[in-house]
Write a protein that binds this DNA or RNA. Sequence first.
DNA 1: CTGTTAGCGCCTTCAA
DNA 2: TTGAAGGCGCTAACAG
Lengths: 350, 350
Amino acid sequence: MPSIKKVAELAGVSVGTVSHVITGSVNVSEPLRLKVQAAIRELNYHPNHVARSLKTSKTRTLGIIVPDLTISFYPQIIRGAETAARKKGYSLIAVNSDDEGERQRELLSLLRSQRVEGILLVIAAAPIPLSQLTRILDDDIPVVCLDRIPERIPVDSVCVEDAEAAEMGVTHLLSQGARRIAIVTGPLNLKNERRRLQGCTQALRKAGIPPDPELIWSANLRPEDIANDCRRHFSPDARNLRPDAIFCTNGQSALGVLRALRDCKIRTPEDIAFATFDELTVDDLFSPALTTVVQPAFEIGYRATEILLDRIEGIATQAESITVRLPASLRIRASSKRLEANAKPPLPSA
Amino acid sequence: MPSIKKVAELAGVSVGTVSHVITGSVNVSEPLRLKVQAAIRELNYHPNHVARSLKTSKTRTLGIIVPDLTISFYPQIIRGAETAARKKGYSLIAVNSDDEGERQRELLSLLRSQRVEGILLVIAAAPIPLSQLTRILDDDIPVVCLDRIPERIPVDSVCVEDAEAAEMGVTHLLSQGARRIAIVTGPLNLKNERRRLQGCTQALRKAGIPPDPELIWSANLRPEDIANDCRRHFSPDARNLRPDAIFCTNGQSALGVLRALRDCKIRTPEDIAFATFDELTVDDLFSPALTTVVQPAFEIGYRATEILLDRIEGIATQAESITVRLPASLRIRASSKRLEANAKPPLPSA
DNA sequence: CTGTTAGCGCCTTCAA
DNA sequence: TTGAAGGCGCTAACAG
């Protein structure tokens, strides 16, 4: 591939001049500029970003680590991030941690080696030593956490209003007459899962219903495992302990629950009302459209990237971490609709 | 961020020695190696890939261009590609073309500037000058096309067996008693869309049904536009021209059709049977689970990357282009189920 | 306005 | 086994 030197030769000018027309940093006379541009076209020359980065120590590249690109929530975040990055001429490298601590460590190391100028991070669900993050912060690489926010580490962050969003979902189920609402959560070592659970119990309390520990089902994020757990809860023996509604605090949990419902031939909303955080990627599981608490995924990615770029470019200089919390919205669909057949009286407070 | 020089100083050795222990290319005595490793840890040193790439002119990075990361088919491809790449120590940069020719041109240029060693490309749906691709091939950057294969350009490619897969879908609808099957396709300038259409008409012909041009609906890939078109087809005036089944050759078309069906209050499969290429990302549109022709997306990405790496590493040297076609599978679900109420007699051939 | 040149950090001969 | 040094392609002074 041709280098700047070849272009200079062909155009009959010095490499400095070529560099000037490329970067536009210094004025170059019309005739020379035209000659250079012609040479560039003729050689199909593309400036070597690698060399440029080495010289300027600026890669104009950001990294984003997500648990799994195939979970539809994350591509939306990435699109938001990409859009914000592109607007300022930055590229984005997206990688998957598979929610594994070791993999995340490798990726952070890789991104550092690639000299990305900032990192967008959805921390892995696995418990992770604090040092993983603090080390990279010590290296002065700006990091913005999104979706899942680590604890006890001062770091910029963008996520949904977890508690409020979850409360909205459960309150809706209550309004549809549900009384025994099972809450299905992911790992409670994640702060956002805990916050969402708090939002759920908050909704129950406001309705005068004491949260029942038997109806709080916490698990990992693997749909198969969650489905297994649920099938136990749905066994015929447990019939009279069965909830009349289910709320899931994330999409992976919802997938598991829906599989279990299908396998146990429990209908929604006829037998159990259903609502969940996040839209799903499934078309084989359920008959009714699902009521969902939808996060502004694109905007989460977009805002996080704006903050990251402000840090990189020294526009945001405050020592305190920047914290953005965005509201979710509720999409009410068939899965949570009250059925006259099994309707209960509305709440006094509702 | 510390450089190799700082490590050398701290360890009390030369930079050459440090380089040797990092790359492992030259033996270094135990004591020195330990000292170097200790220094690396202490400084939290990460080798500068930028400098290394400049020196070796190897970035160990691949690029992948897809139309839109938020279409669930593509993240699966990317995961496949990432898996194959990682196995050989390569990283992946994924970018979206939005199916625009100009954007694709920019991205190819960007990837060239980043000096990726190879490119995985799903060509944009917009008509694109051949030169865009040939120029990059001329630069000796290996390219493997996936999913959508360009015409008149000899290039390695991996995709599904389009015609056979589509034929399988339509044959299934026929077996369920459908006779007037509407085929909804994307832009026919894409070869894969044409091949899929051919597969559909092939299935009809084998069943002794002459393809009806009125029942071949070709459009762009924007669900809103497709929905608009379909609503016309579904208008009450056109009731007796209405098909008894619909087959979509891609997921975006399916999204549009399903929206139109919902809006026109046409039930599936009661009023119209339905099957489509690709799994969808929707949970608000349809009651029945969808019958789908599923592409081996992960494997498409994986195989394409293997081929790309073989080209990069000079393992594959043949001048002819490598062509891989993978079989699809049919997932029969409720949307295509024959209903006794409106069942027709089975085909003689079925 | 144009040309010259020093180095960015690293790897890799080559010599010791 | 270890060290010294050139140069990958580029940008940014600086000199002319």
